[in-house]
Design a protein around this nucleic acid. Sequence first.
DNA 1: CTGAAAGCGCTAACAC
DNA 2: GTGTTAGCGCTTTCAG
Lengths: 345, 345
Amino acid sequence: MGLSISDIAKLAGVSHSTVSRVLNDAPIRISAQKREQIIQIAQRMNYIPNRSAQALKTGRHGRIAVIAYDITDAFAVECVSAVETILSGSPYHALWMSCAHADKKETDPLNLLTEVAQSVDGIIIILADNYLTDTAILKFWAATHLPLVTVIRRVSGDVISSVTIDNEYGTTILMEYLLKLGHEQIAFCYCNPPNQSASGRYEVYQQIVKSKHLPVDLLQVPVDGTASNGYSAGMKLLNTPKKPTAIIGFDDLTAIGVIKACFDMGVKVPAEVSVAAFDNIRMAEISSPSLTTVSTDYSELAQMAIDELNNQINQPNLSNYIAKHHISKPALITRQSTAIPKSKV
Amino acid sequence: MGLSISDIAKLAGVSHSTVSRVLNDAPIRISAQKREQIIQIAQRMNYIPNRSAQALKTGRHGRIAVIAYDITDAFAVECVSAVETILSGSPYHALWMSCAHADKKETDPLNLLTEVAQSVDGIIIILADNYLTDTAILKFWAATHLPLVTVIRRVSGDVISSVTIDNEYGTTILMEYLLKLGHEQIAFCYCNPPNQSASGRYEVYQQIVKSKHLPVDLLQVPVDGTASNGYSAGMKLLNTPKKPTAIIGFDDLTAIGVIKACFDMGVKVPAEVSVAAFDNIRMAEISSPSLTTVSTDYSELAQMAIDELNNQINQPNLSNYIAKHHISKPALITRQSTAIPKSKV
DNA sequence: CTGAAAGCGCTAACAC
DNA sequence: GTGTTAGCGCTTTCAG
């Protein structure tokens, strides 16, 4: 092990507790020269405090775990990145772990959580529907009562605090926009298996379409959230007798797959078909054409999660904490991929 | 703090060391019934070992830090993801930290490294040119002699082991491919400030272009590695009197920006201009058109980094370890964005 | 203002 | 086979 506090205590001719006090800016006055000398020695010797020892002693870690189900997922990246930005202005360090391969390491995905449980002051869980079941999260919480908040997902039972997106609002503004442009044949690419966000969006879409008496049948295509599935969904839709004039992807990646299908089929976007989606991942802006999408306020999402976590960290007793549920409102960003339908120009 | 080893020792009526032995599968025989009983109690009580205490005692952490300069960077994501995949088959857990905001937290970017130094068994540094200087890394290494390997980057001084890409080879196969298609006006979008990968690629491009006596002047456009800069570079190139027939981006994102410029200007890719790049980030496959690119073997890259790290971890004395430099060979992936130039069809 | 001492939870060497 | 003990590096109470 590296240099310890008592090593530098010896060099300075003081006790190790004095060194500790100096290095931690303890609220106790220490003679200026000793202080100076100790700091100098610590710097010169490249002293690095042993976090394990500190944590063992104090019970505090100065770290927040960010658990994302897959770092490769563009949406997760936006969330993680936003969390990191907010956290960088706090006394905490972000520490992220992915559970994409949790299944490989242990049979129980709960192990990832327990692995990290004793190294952090709080946990933010992003997505992870498919890997971490509600039951697992609830069990973990019951066992630890560690500050915990789920992002984008709300665990059943109302015990775990959450931050989610107002998908009802998001879907409504998108639909209103498309209807106003004059679209009547609006397809929705759903995902299979569904997740909470996708379901919420799909349900509202269905309601609106029904209430306006628009054709809804055969315009639903199951996809599983990758661009290649969006691609095949797009291919199917373009080969339908009643071709839709607008296609909504339940997320941006799906829509980008649809755009690629259009490109390969020589169907012009948005001249012949409009495409829109949800999330506003970075790619949405730089795709050709750029994508109209319901944008998540990642910064707000992250701020809500960290505020909630801080709140929990400051609770004296978390075991009877009443979960809070925060909801972030998205906004519509119109770009190149949507326009007035050909028939109405 | 949670349940400790001695809590469950009490419940089982044994000493805490017996519990420790059982839970760690120590190479000592313990009576079957006690073993059984201890394991049962630990499970029932949801015992979670305190990693800080274990680490403090043993000096081992079971963790590898992966430091990426920005999780938002698609290339970094591919590297991180590959590292995580490899690591998931090892006894180590990945723990990643980004230094994108390191400047915000402390003046010295070295602090991120020191922060993590005492919590891991080894460190993988991905990119981070702009944030962590060579000097900082060298200083850190001198202070800790912690297992350390840089990916994509080679620290000057030949003390730090590295894993890099054979950019000379990659650029050569790409240029040969374009020349074979019949291109003679090949532009290269460089970045400013340059990084090691970009410089390596650019130099080889220059050499080849000169040796073939192709026009090289005014075809270099500085960009800084974001799609929007690729976009403006593309715009400039398309407005040149001698329009290039092929444009190479020093990375995929730049090329995707170029493609977008072409889209907005109504210039058909690849019919009127071919576009190609380096890295093969995920977006390259799903862009419209999909992008011809020199693909990094991320899996190999990650394996090399972890093998090197493991090797260092098993060294008795790292302070006079001789750095090893591993080089991964890329491969050309041809997709929709390149074709025979219009004039030669 | 500063030192001595206890102890966080754990592992491992040493007794028996 | 199992218990006792020391101590990893640190913070913090208690003396002085």
